[in-house]
Each structure stands twice: as C-alpha cells, then as structure tokens.
Amino acid sequence: MTISVATLALGTGLLLMLIGLWGLLAQRNLIRLILGFSLLDTGIHIVMVSIGYVTGGTAPIIDAAVDPAQAVHTVVDPIPSALVLTAIVIGLGITAVMLSFAIRIHDRKKTLSIEDCTESKG
C-alpha cells in the first residue's frame, strides 16, 4: 500500500497538533507554552492544506503550465489555501500578543514559570 502525499501531510499535521497539545498541558515555562501553541497552530494549518489537496493537482495559478480550459481538473482547491493564509496571519498576531504578555510577566515577577502566576487561582 502506498501512502499518498495528502495522507502523509495529514499525519504530520495531526502529530504536530498532538505535540503542541502536550506542550500546552505539560510545560510550565511561558515561552514553551507559546511554542506549544504555535505547534498546535501549525499542525492545524497542515491538516487544512492536506484536506484541500486534490490527487495529482498543481498550484491554483493559471499560467503557462496550466491550461485554463482544463484547470478544473488539474489544480488543487484554492479555498483551504486562502483560509490557511488568513489563519497564519492571525496566529502570528496572537503569538506576538502572547509574547508581550510574557515580557510583562517577566518584568514584574522576574520569572517565566506559570507556577508563580497565582493571582487568579481559585
């Protein structure tokens, strides 16, 4: 049995999501938590792109390599790519805000461990 590119990408994405989830659950350092979040994010992107892949398809760009009349049968789905483009940018914005929160917490407490952030603990 041969494994297709899309299945391989899907598996990689799901594995990255699991690693990211593990990081979020098991790590106590704020930077590592943010890294876990980024891994989870990236994993989701790869899963979305692999769902949009059409077997044997090429990039959805009409140029010399793609005949416009046959484009429907030769290109991959452009919609997941566009969604992932949006998701990457928003992930970047969220990561930037999380990192600045980490900087502020480090300014105040001189530590990056989440164990020391006990103010809102019930």
Partner: peptide, 9 residues
C-alpha cells in the same frame, strides 16, 4: 485524498 474539487472551488 480528494480526487476532484468541491463545487464551490
């Protein structure tokens, strides 16, 4: 893996 595009695409 899909072998054709969705109707919207």
């Amino acid at each position: 893996p899909a072998d054709k595009l969705s109707p919207l695409a």
